[in-house]
């Protein structure tokens, strides 16, 4: 086969090469910075592990069933927090969604403000919000509800505004042509189109909020997180095992129900 001709070399664009090398350099620099900067005390970590592993992991798999009633009550409180917070967010997000949708709000400046508020709210981790509200209203479930409500409003408002922007505007124009006023258009033209998706997103958000509210108690904002905090500070890993088990079961059930309902709505 020696007489066969080799394929020509691929032509390379120097700009492309420069761009790729720059990217590679940045990535390498980031990794160098990371591995030089990170400070892990391996010796101590392994020493601790040798001492603690047996005390923690096996016990997680032997849940303490005596705590069942207590843990279940706390989980139910978590569901209350998630529900109250989600519903508040589902309602609060409606005006913000309308504000941020550029076919509903004709003022460019206002839609920009709406979108900015929504993305700013989304940037805060739920737990940081919870921490703020715990300082403001004290360590109780109310702080959790507020954290969930505010945190979810950012995401729901964004999703709502996207639904609104995809609304069939022909219906709206037809109604305008018929002389309907703004409120009539809203209630008869827009809302019937968006209700199923709004509901579906709100239910989905409840699903997310259940997960989020399980940990709020770690900073004092109520629910099962409170027990998580105590179980870990008392090194009660059997109880932690039960807590994790209940979270897994309840979250899975909620996900399942929520998915089933959303399937029927849309």
């Amino acid at each position: 086969m020696a007489e066969l001709q080799m394929p020509p070399k691929k032509k390379r664009n120097p700009l492309n090469i420069a761009k790729k090398s720059l990217m590679a350099a940045v990535v390498i620099a980031l990794y160098v910075w990371t591995f030089l900067g990170i400070n892990i005390d391996w010796e101590r970590a392994f020493e601790r592990m040798a001492n603690n592993f047996e005390r923690v992991i096996p016990r997680l798999f032997r849940p303490d069933w005596n705590a069942f009633d207590k843990v279940l009550d706390a989980m139910i409180e978590t569901l209350y927090i998630a529900f109250a917070g989600s519903l508040m967010a589902a309602i609060l997000a409606i005006p913000l969604g309308f504000l941020a949708a550029n076919n509903m709000t004709n003022n460019r400046f206002l839609t920009a403000v709406g979108k900015w508020i929504l993305s700013a709210v989304r940037a805060f981790p739920d737990l940081i919000l919870a921490l703020l509200f715990v300082v403001a209203v004290g360590p109780n479930p109310f702080a959790g509800v507020l954290a969930i409500a505010i945190g979810s409003t950012g995401m729901l408002g964004k999703l709502y505004s996207e639904v609104l922007e995809s609304v069939d505007m022909k219906v709206v124009e037809a109604m305008e042509a018929n002389g309907a006023n703004k409120l009539q258009i809203l209630f008869h033209g827009v809302i019937p189109q968006v209700i199923p998706e709004f509901l579906s997103y709100a239910i989905y958000r409840f699903e997310v909020d259940v997960r989020a509210s399980t940990i709020l108690g770690v900073v004092g904002a109520g629910g099962i997180g409170t027990l998580i905090f105590f179980a870990s500070s008392n090194r009660n890993w059997n109880e932690m095992g039960l807590i994790i088990l209940i979270i897994i079961v309840v979250v899975t059930i909620i996900d399942f129900i929520s998915a089933a309902i959303r399937k029927r709505i849309v």
Binding site: I38, N39, I40, D41, W42, R44, A45, R48, M49, N52, F53, V56, I57, L60, L127, R211, T214, I215, V218, G225, I228, F229, S232, R235, W237, M240, I243, I244, I247, I248, V251, T252
Partner: peptide, 24 residues
């Protein structure tokens, strides 16, 4: 699916329990 339902904070608390406080 089970892995995804365990909150990150719970994982952190368990690992802190095993390895002590710190980044690891």
């Amino acid at each position: 699916n089970v892995l995804r339902t365990i909150p990150d904070i719970v994982l952190a608390l368990i690992f802190v329990g095993i390895f002590g406080l710190g980044v690891f």
